[in-house]
Amino acid sequence: MNRPVLPLLAILVALLFAASLLIGPAALGLRESLSALFGGQGGPVVLVMQEIRLPRAILGLCVGAVLGLSGAAMQGFLRNPLAEPGLIGVSSTAALGAVLSLQTGLAAAFALALPLAALAGAAVSVALVLWMAGPRGGALALILAGIAISALAGALTSLILNLSPNPFAAMEIVYWMMGSLADRSMTHVWLAVPFMAAGSLLLLATGRSLDALTVGEDAARSMGVDIRRLRLLIVIGTAAAVGASVAVAGAIGFVGLVIPHLLRPLVGGQPSRLLPAAALGGAAMVLASDIAVRVVAPDQDLKLGVLTALVGAPFFLHLLWRMRGLEA
């Protein structure tokens, strides 16, 4: 199992990042694109490269990385390969915050209202989940609290759609919830990246504790792992990273579920080695999907979240199929 997984994944991500910069509806030459990216004054090409494609590629990289990373951390903490970052309610409450800002018109009045409302939603979910799971709450309490909060946030989102007097507003909400990286600016990058970076640092710090947790909670504690601190790192790290991701890209499903599962055998199963690999793998999946939505249906505005779910759901079924085979 000593294959150089991380370097290969890093090369793949670098290639996809470059491809994301170079592929788009505006047919630009390679040399033209690169010179516009790294310099140049004004002009439509410079505008396209620096204001449209660069933020899109950066967000694709970061959103994918935090989804893969938090998925791997969540699976490691709950010792369950079917866990995903949305399990603790972060994604659905962040989406509820965003939907509220769309419905109230705040998002139209003030450009950053939507991502800020989504981040506020994520913060509320952290407070709620930690309070409901209790100070000594174990993994099961955390999952149940997360499910309850997700259900409540989902119901409130549906209620907003249900009561929406304006069909165009409802349409906008529905499209936003599908998840996309189109038409994001560097402002979105500057808003989201600090939260994603901070959350990722917290999650990357959990590697050795997650390794110990492989042999169970009691054994891990007897080896000196502080489970309460670990739980706090996982919940707050996931909320910051995934909350920021939902804030700028909407709900992009299945990356956090599929990527850790796909890469686990390649890194020898250990959670500490899976964390960085899943971050790179998630970045590769979202960058590739975001290129695909531009190439497959350039005129249709195919949503990124729709594509990742289309690819991810059959994989999930395959996973269940294999598990059934093992249990038989």
Partner: peptide, 14 residues
């Protein structure tokens, strides 16, 4: 060192 009663190995590790 502690060996808990519940035997658990969560991931396919060497």
């Amino acid at each position: 060192a502690f060996l808990p009663q519940t035997r658990e190995i969560a991931w396919p590790v060497r």
